[in-house]
Design a protein around this nucleic acid. Structure first.
Lengths: 244, 244
DNA sequence: ATGCATTAATTGGTCGGACCACCCGACCAA
DNA sequence: TTGGTCGGGTGGTCCGACCAATTAATGCAT
């Protein structure tokens, strides 16, 4: 499946240093470099890629932020075990490494989302302030021109805010990042869009009445529904792929 | 509470560009700059901080990876809404912004961990391979010299690997990052260390017999226990703080 | 021979200044 | 009004130099 250019950009935009970073990352992820192995000098890398050392440095900084390398002043650059990285962006990078999506990873995201987001709704129903409730109402009932995809993301985002837990918020933002790419595949189907509109109303009511159990239940339902839709869509893709 | 230099380093090491990044981040988080506001030119920032433009650029790259700014070629640098960032490292950055820990954030981490990690153990018990089981056995039963703190982290890490879900793994790594700093406060207490040793054995047995429900239960128990210990410890800190 | 201070070489970190690529607003022409 | 052009400003890349930290070789004292 081809990716929209915008998101692919995460690490393969037109910036030279991002291309370099992507090339190096690929080598690390594909285990062409061993953990603990020393990378060539910044100067040598610059020579190898035929770019300036500054550019190499910016690429290395990128990889350092992904926690896949360690830069030691006066010593060198070493490969770290990417399986010990705490960086979510690493998932993006891997996800789009070959400009094709990894459906296995997508499944893992759905799995965690199903666990996490209903609890987030549960907490949000308990903690929500009047401001959050009002904001939610505004989105759900008074934004008729807003595309369902956008509205859905905003609903989730507002619930995350209402939970008062910054970690939920960040993870929700992370999930939403994928929606930007794939959401239309889901929301373009009228049945799914209608399902979401109903969900928005239901979850609003639950949160309004601080009915945390209900909020969790409603959230879980819609996630399971969407998950099923995505699974069958991917299944379709795979069958096509095999046929080609 | 003062922080160990190693971890504070995440964004305040001795590298000049990280100090610059930290200064700018502080302004953004404290909302001294509005979302959408344009930052000064790289050249002007260099002038302002009395550093080279390259250094400023590296700092900006850091902030870009935290998703708190957007750099537009030919245009400028703009402040983004950090509440929409999907970057876990942002939590670290905020956490240690003033070289003091934010106990509220710590609570949010514990909250999410309590939801997530038991499910991870559940999945791991289902998916674990013989290799993972063997690795777990090695850690739990045949590494007598390993400090309990380290052993505990490795147990969790191995379970995350066994879950086969890279997102669980990354989040677990993220949680472990905090353990490196605070774990000793917990494991230095013999009672807690013993509790963990027992947990390691229990969870190993559950995973060995692919008893996913039991694995989840065992995991939840130990997390609740640890959470309680941490809460009371923090409570102690606060009382001292008020007394001072 | 051993241990430790000194030194030299290597590597990442910072600097400064130059030029390229891109964006935008002002201005002009159709 | 529309469309194109151009100029100034901004980030992106480049170059070459020097600073700072690390490491390993050196050599001296024990």
């Amino acid at each position: 499946m081809n990716m929209p250019a915008a998101r692919m950009g995460q690490i393969t935009r037109n910036r030279l240093y991002e291309k370099i970073a992507s090339l190096l990352l690929k080598k690390i992820i594909k285990s062409e470099m061993q953990v603990g192995e020393k990378l060539p000098t910044e100067r040598n890398l610059a020579l190898h890629f035929q770019v300036n050392r500054s550019t190499v440095r910016e690429a290395l900084k990128k990889l350092e932020s992904l926690d896949v390398i360690e830069i030691r002043h006066g010593d060198g650059v070493y490969v770290k075990n990417y399986l010990e990285s705490p960086s979510l962006e690493l998932i993006n990078a891997v996800f789009y490494l070959d400009n094709t999506l990894d459906t296995d990873i997508l499944m893992t995201l759905l799995e965690v989302r199903r666990i996490l987001v209903p609890e987030m709704a549960f907490i949000a129903a308990q903690n929500r302030s009047e401001e959050h409730l009002k904001k939610l109402e505004e989105i759900v009932f008074h934004s008729p021109d807003m595309p369902v995809l956008i509205r859905d993301m905003k609903v989730h985002h507002t619930i995350a805010l209402a939970s008062g837990n910054i970690l939920y918020l960040i993870l929700l933002n992370f999930f939403n990042g994928f929606f930007v790419d794939f959401g239309h595949l889901y929301f373009d189907i009228p049945e799914n869009a209608e399902r979401s509109v109903q969900f928005h109303k239901d979850v609003y009511e639950a949160i309004k009445h601080a009915d945390s159990g209900r909020a969790r239940e409603v959230m879980l339902d819609v996630l399971l529904y969407a998950e099923q839709a995505i699974r069958s869509y991917i299944q379709t893709l795979k069958e096509k792929g095999e046929g080609a």
